[in-house]
């Protein structure tokens, strides 16, 4: 989905809130919720792609205003409700207040019908796909051309894995783009490498 989470290249954001001794956690509840989400994954209640997608499905206003760990919390609660572990009513009763969840999921998809094996040096184009469900193609590479640098081991196909759709595992390709081609006349010159699933790619002939 072309969601608010797909931030790469979005303009208008200010300086990175950077400090040398930056922490991972700031409050005790953050560690607890991180642990609870990992416990749910360990118990097989949901997988990492479902987890990521349930964050992406947060109402955009909520996504942008929530802290990182509030997004973790919202995804965890949404999936536990969707999987029948607990009801939203029970959560709200226990929390003594409303408990906002993510929007419902749209259908996923299986691997592309035609997939090609690529070699380092091959020129590839990212397919112009718009999908309603989970996808790991950042919008800034859609339709763009790059060069294959290497191939990874096969992974579960996220567009399927986040939706319980059957699919074959497939490799990702490390594809090298030029920032100046991704955002013509509007980027600092650099090479941008993206791990791109095979189903998202087609050969440039």
């Amino acid at each position: 989905m072309d969601g608010i989470h797909d931030l790469g290249g979005k303009q208008g954001f200010g300086r990175v809130r950077y400090s040398l001794k930056a922490q991972t956690f700031h409050e005790p509840w953050e560690k607890r919720v991180n642990a609870l989400f990992l416990l749910a994954v360990k118990l097989g209640i949901f997988n990492m792609d479902e987890y990521r997608h349930a964050i992406e499905r947060m109402e955009p206003r909520h996504y942008l205003s929530a802290s990182y760990y509030e997004r973790t919390l919202t995804s965890l609660a949404t999936l536990c409700v969707e999987k029948g572990i607990v009801t939203q009513e029970e959560l709200e009763r226990r929390a003594q207040g409303s408990f906002p969840l993510s929007a419902p999921s749209a259908p996923g998809r299986s691997n592309a019908a035609e997939r090609e094996r690529f070699q380092p040096g091959d020129r590839v184009r990212v397919r112009v796909d718009h999908v309603p469900g989970h996808v790991r193609m950042p919008g800034y590479i859609r339709g763009k051309t790059g060069v294959v640098v290497s191939e990874s081991p096969a992974y579960p196909f996220p567009d399927a894995h986040a939706h319980g759709v059957k699919a074959a595992d497939e490799p990702t390709y490390d594809v090298r783009f030029r920032a100046e081609e991704l955002w013509p006349n509007s980027a600092d010159p650099a090479l941008v490498h993206v791990g791109v699933f095979q189903s998202y790619l087609e050969r440039v002939r």
């Binding site: 607890r32 609870l36 609660a77 959560l91 709200e92 226990r94 207040g97 409303s98």
Partner: peptide, 19 residues
């Protein structure tokens, strides 16, 4: 009725208690 949103701490505690 629309209740106010529970604090993040209360929401985490709710999931933990349910688990």
């Amino acid at each position: 009725e629309r209740q106010p949103t529970a604090s993040v701490q209360q929401r985490v505690a709710a999931i933990e208690a349910a688990f």
